[in-house]
Design a protein around this nucleic acid. Structure first.
Lengths: 170, 170
DNA sequence: AAACGATAGTAAAGTAACTTGACTATTTTG
DNA sequence: CAAAATAGTCAAGTTACTTTACTATCGTTT
C-alpha cells in the first residue's frame, strides 16, 4: 500500500526579502516539529475535552483521560499504568483511586499474583469510551476536511510509523 | 511547491483473521490522531528535556519551556503569555517570576502602557535558546532519518497547515 | 525449606503547577 | 470626565504530581 500526501501549497518561507531582525535567528522556535506537535495535540485535547463536557462528563480532566487511555479492557496493573505514563506508582494509585471513586474504573485482585490488582472499566467507564469516540470522530472528520482525506490518513500512518521508531529507540 | 510523502509500507491492519475480542470495538483508542500526536509529542519533549539536562539545565521543567516558548525576543506581556498558554494570568505570573528568579527572563515596564510590563530574555535566557536548538536539531535529524527526509519535511508542513486551520477555527 | 532480593502496592508528607476570588493601578470608551 | 475594560498583584485553595518509608507477596538461591 502506498499513500501519497500532497503538502499544502504554500510559498516557501525564505524570509530573504523582509527586514532582517534579531528574531530571524530564532525563527526555528516557531516551526520545529516538537512545537507543532505540541500545538496541534493541544488543539485536539481542547476540542475533545469540550465535547466531553458538553456530553456531561464534567469530572474528567486531562490527567483522567491519560489514565483511562492507559487502561485496557482486559485489565491493567497499576505498575503498568505508571510505567506507561512515566509517573510514580503513587501518582498512578491516586489517579486510579479518583476514577474509581467517580465510578469509571474498578479494581479486582489479580488471580495470577497476590500482590497485584487489575484496574478495569466499569459499565460507566465503558460508556465513557463509547461517548468519547463521538468527539474523536468529529475532530478527525474536521481535520480530514481541512487537510483532505488522503493527507489526513497519511498523517496518521506517518505518526504511527514514527511512534514505532521512538518506542524501539528510547 | 509540491512535496510528496510516501507513507510507511505497512500492511493494512484489517484485523479480520485474528480472534475477535471485546477489545476490537475499542481499537480506535490506540490509533486515533489525538493519541498519536500525544505520544509522539511526549517523546519529543522527553528527548529535549533529557538533552537540556545533559547540558546543565537542571532547573528547566516542561512548564518552564512552555513559558519560554511563549515569550518573544522583543518582549511579551504577561497577559499574552497567559492567553497563549490558556492559563490564568496568576499562573503565568508565577511561572515568569520563577524564571526571573532563575535568571532566564526579566521584566521591564512597557513604555506604551503604564499598567503593563514586558517579559524579555536575559543573556542567560538567550543562551538557553541557542543551546536548546542543539537538542531540537538532533531530535529532528533522528526523526528525519527514521521517516526519510522528504516525509519528515512534509510532516512538518502538514502540521503547520493543520495548525493554521485550528487557529482559524477555534 | 528458609533466606533473600525483587516486585506490587500503600501511607504520609511535601512540591509544582495550576485555579478562584478579591483587589489596585492604569487605560480606553462613550 | 465617569464608567467600563484591561494589566497585573496578593492570598488561599486544588490538582497532579514526587519523595521517603513501609508492608505483602513473589521468585530465586542455596
Amino acid at each position: 500500500m502506498m499513500i501519497v500526501m500532497i503538502s499544502p501549497n504554500t510559498t516557501p518561507s525564505t524570509h530573504t526579502s523582509s527586514t532582517p531582525s534579531q528574531e530571524d535567528a530564532f525563527a526555528w522556535r516557531h516551526y520545529h516539529i516538537g512545537r507543532l506537535l505540541f500545538e496541534v495535540q493541544r488543539d485536539f485535547q481542547f476540542r475533545s475535552l469540550t465535547q466531553l463536557k458538553s456530553l456531561g462528563y464534567t469530572d474528567i480532566s486531562r490527567a483522567s483521560i491519560s489514565v483511562i487511555a492507559s487502561t485496557s479492557l482486559g485489565g491493567t496493573r497499576l505498575t503498568d499504568i505508571a510505567k506507561n505514563l512515566d509517573i510514580s506508582k503513587q501518582a498512578a494509585s491516586q489517579m486510579v483511586k479518583d476514577l474509581v471513586d467517580k465510578g469509571y474504573l474498578s479494581r479486582t485482585p489479580d488471580p495470577s499474583d497476590g500482590r497485584a490488582s487489575l484496574v478495569t472499566f466499569t459499565d460507566k467507564g465503558q460508556q465513557f469510551l463509547v461517548d468519547a469516540k463521538l468527539g474523536v470522530d468529529e475532530i478527525e472528520a474536521r481535520y480530514a476536511a481541512w487537510l483532505g482525506e488522503s493527507t489526513f490518513e497519511s498523517l496518521r500512518e506517518v505518526l504511527l510509523d514514527l511512534l514505532e521508531h521512538t518506542q524501539a529507540n528510547p
